[in-house]
Design a protein around this nucleic acid. Structure first.
Length: 432
RNA sequence: GUGGGUGUAGCUCAGUUGGUUAGAGCGCCAGAUUGUGGUUCUGGAGGCCGCGGGUUCGAAUCCCGUCACUCACCCCA
């Protein structure tokens, strides 16, 4: 006998048993519906992509340490997609000729990263991706933020539970350069320090700044920079950059009907974001973390096409979303029970039993019939365990007069009705 | 890549300064109940005490190693 294989799923991946799957399905269906009410269209693509599409723009850490890479039989280098944005940029570029912009697309792919699993972090997750391609208008930003608010609303979360924090990388770049007096090549490492500003102790941040060649005066200015309010932040940037900032327009002109908070510490790790960046945070003390984020990438399709197609979007992962819903007790209850079971008292009545079941299914009732013969008592026990609310009993005596028994399992009441009326009787029992 | 915590029944967990046959609750199966379930009662199945080594008359218990899970760091969707 060879040793038995482990039943646990591969590290960092998850099995979804029916109860949990039911919760997920309910949550995601609501999200799909809401996204579609904004006119977004769903697409999908391959799990495997050429490694090159991530190498250019996604960031070093991701490609070097987190990418699942494999070689096919013809020596092509492929990766399990770690995110969807490069794939969708590829698809948009390939089909740009016959698309009418702006294009509103969404998808729900599984994405893989070689991570060390921990809370909120796994190796395979499902990420809802929402993108608008082909518009440089500030209205694209506004629409994305409105959609985010709508998504939380459909899940039962009001704006007091979360916070959209927004920044503009172009603005931040210029402001940092001018306010602190940084050379352009110093800005990116300083961004990375800013990204961790709230998580690390002050001394550590200052040390890291020194490590990037900033003297004490410059480090002090960076610290002051983190505390700038929005008007001062905008003033610090070069005038020509100020005028381009969509984030500045939204905040200054009040274009968004819903909360949005400026935060100079939001910079995000992906290299392809060019201007608007945002992250959505859970404000609960127990789960104070980034739930998801996104931003504007004005030249990502440049990898695939000479045509310039700007885009903006976000990726919402299932793990952090479920943690958020869990924290706020917003997870829907699992719904895995059939509505009805149909049973017969003796094997000769199986045919009639199946006719009754067919009639119920025709009416849209989730109906189960026994596969293995057991007594009525046993089958009713199984029905209760399954959570069925109604049992239809086909007995010899009733069958003789064209009738069946419809039993309300919750109330322990039953009625004899004509077999032809079974669907309406079951329907009204379920409606009680 | 670095550090902490935890590994005992399907699940949640007890298990005394090391002591003989390793327990409970829940779940599962069967019976009480061959035309009526959930409750109740009775019975039953189910354990390489993560794995390997060591100490000891004796190890679930102590020591070393290893693997797995988990949390955090790093980094980040």
């Amino acid at each position: 006998m060879p040793p038995l294989l482990p039943t646990a799923p591969y590290r960092g991946t998850r099995d979804f048993l029916p109860e949990e799957m039911s919760v997920r399905t309910q949550v995601f269906s609501r999200l799909y519906e809401t996204i579609e009410t904004f006119g977004f269209q769903r697409y999908d693509g391959p799990v495997l992509e050429p490694v090159e599409i991530y190498e250019a723009k996604s960031g070093q850490e991701l490609v070097e340490r987190q990418l699942y890479v494999l070689t096919d039989k013809a020596d092509r280098r492929l990766a399990l997609r770690p995110e969807m944005t490069p794939s969708v940029a590829r698809m948009i570029a390939a089909n740009a000729g016959r698309l009418s912009f702006p294009v509103r697309w969404y998808s729900h792919p599984n994405c893989h990263r070689y991570e060390k699993p921990q809370k909120g972090r796994v190796r395979e997750h499902w990420q809802i991706n929402v993108d608008v391609f082909g518009s440089e208008s500030v209205e694209a930003e506004v629409e994305i933020f409105e959609l985010i608010h709508a998504l939380f609303r459909t899940l039962g979360a009001d704006p007091s539970l979360y916070e959209i924090r927004v920044n503009d990388r172009g603005l931040a770049f210029s402001a940092l350069e001018r306010f602190v007096g940084l050379a352009p090549e110093q800005v990116k490492p300083v961004f990375q320090v800013l990204d961790r500003w709230e998580k690390l102790p002050r001394e550590v941040c200052l040390e890291q700044l020194a490590g990037h060649g900033l003297d004490a005066a410059a480090a002090a200015k960076v610290e002051a920079f983190t505390k700038l309010d929005f008007p001062a932040f905008v003033d610090a940037a070069a005038p020509e950059v100020r005028g381009e900032s969509r984030v500045a327009r939204i905040l200054n002109e009040g274009l968004l009907d819903g909360p949005l908070r400026f935060d100079p510490l939001i910079v995000r790790g992906l290299d392809y974001y060019t201007s608007t960046v945002f992250e959505v945070f859970d404000v609960s003390p127990e789960n104070r973390r980034s739930i998801f984020g996104g931003g504007r990438y004005d030249n990502l399709t440049a990898l695939f096409s000479k045509q310039r197609i700007p885009g903006i979007g976000f990726g919402l992962g299932d793990v952090t979303l479920m943690d958020f819903l869990e924290t706020h007790e917003l997870k829907p209850a699992p719904d895995v029970s059939p509505d009805a079971v149909v049973l017969c008292a003796e094997p000769s009545l199986r045919g009639s039993m199946k006719e009754v079941a067919a009639r119920l299914r025709e009416a849209g009732v989730k109906t189960v019939t026994p596969l293995d013969g057991g007594g009525l008592g046993k089958e009713l026990k199984k029905a209760a365990k399954l959570g069925a609310r109604v049992a239809v009993l086909v007995g010899a005596e009733e069958h003789g007069r064209g009738a069946v028994i419809v039993r309300d399992l919750a109330r322990s009441e039953q009625r004899e009705v004509a077999a032809t009326d079974v669907a309406s009787e079951v329907g009204s029992t379920l409606a009680r």
